[in-house]
């Protein structure tokens, strides 16, 4: 690993593989032969030459540190610039930063993963780590909601998960035409059809509205706040707790988050514009 001088200095990395997931979502993977170790839920700051940096969750397999993977939606200046790059392009990378899904601590429990839209990307490393150590967990349930069937990401992987006998995967979409034979509705609708126990460890990621809604429905079903983890998003410039942008009350989302246990952050999420 190249030594890094000062926390603001990125390392150059070359895009080894580029995959288009959706019209505006793409995955880049980098070869990191020396091993880029990270914990599920962590993010990197990705730098595009002359444009700027953006915080993107790592979406790869933590058991394969020789390959670094990011799944990105082109939605702002830097991510749109990222979209114009391709195999062979060089980016700057700083990280990994942030807190992680408590995959180790959840051992011995039933695990429920609820993903909304591109929220599946930061959850993917956690899912892979759980499945790689399947015997250490009880029931494993994955609930995934997307806008429409054509907007499902990681389709092949979803099919592989679906094909296992030891995982329950349910997928639901907000909109569909007659050629979709799965359920239609909000992702929380899937909670009606699966066992939901107070002892479950729930990992939740998606748009903030969806996460708020999902936590309400989980609480109605008796899941306590200290059993729910979610991943928050805030504006980040430095990613290391020095610039102040990502603060949510007394918390730096880049250091204390982005993954939070709900009971620790709920009071702040409830105050408008905090």
């Amino acid at each position: 690993m190249m030594p890094v001088v000062g926390p603001y200095v990125p390392r150059a990395m070359t895009i080894a593989r580029a995959t288009r997931e959706l019209a505006d979502v793409f995955t880049y993977s980098f070869d990191t032969p020396a091993g880029f170790a990270f914990r599920p839920g962590q993010f990197n700051m990705l730098y595009v030459h002359g444009i700027g940096e953006v915080a993107i969750s790592i979406s790869g397999d933590p058991a394969e540190p020789q390959r670094l993977v990011h799944t990105i939606r082109a939605v702002g200046t830097v991510t749109r610039a990222l979209d114009h790059l391709g195999e062979g392009s060089v980016l700057g990378v700083r990280g990994p930063y942030g807190s992680a899904w408590p995959v180790e601590d959840a051992k011995g429990r039933d695990v429920m993963v609820i993903a909304g839209g591109l929220g599946l990307a930061p959850l993917r490393p956690a899912i892979l780590q759980v499945l790689a150590n399947r015997a250490d967990y009880g029931r494993v349930t994955i609930l995934y909601g997307a806008r429409s069937p054509s907007e499902l990401v990681f389709r092949e992987e979803l099919q592989r998960w679906r094909g296992r006998f030891d995982v329950r995967l349910e997928v639901i979409v907000d909109h569909a035409s007659r050629d979709w034979f799965g359920p239609i509705g909000v992702v929380t609708k899937l909670l009606d059809g699966v066992p939901v126990e107070p002892d479950d460890a729930v990992f939740l990621c998606g748009p903030e509205i969806m996460m708020r809604f999902a936590t309400r429905e989980l609480e109605q079903r008796g899941v306590p706040r200290d059993a729910i983890w979610l991943s928050l998003e805030r504006s980040m410039k430095c990613g290391v707790g020095l610039c102040g942008h990502c603060q949510l009350a007394g918390s730096f989302v880049c250091k204390d988050g982005p993954v939070y246990r709900l009971d620790r952050i709920a009071p702040y999420l409830q105050v408008r514009e905090l």
């Binding site: 000062g6 200095v9 390392r11 150059a12 730098y47 030459h49 002359g50 060089v90 980016l91 700057g92």
Partner: peptide, 12 residues
């Protein structure tokens, strides 16, 4: 930090 883009990539 200064990043120089050249034929061999980025020099940081």
């Amino acid at each position: 930090v200064q990043i120089r883009r050249g034929p061999h990539g980025l020099a940081i």
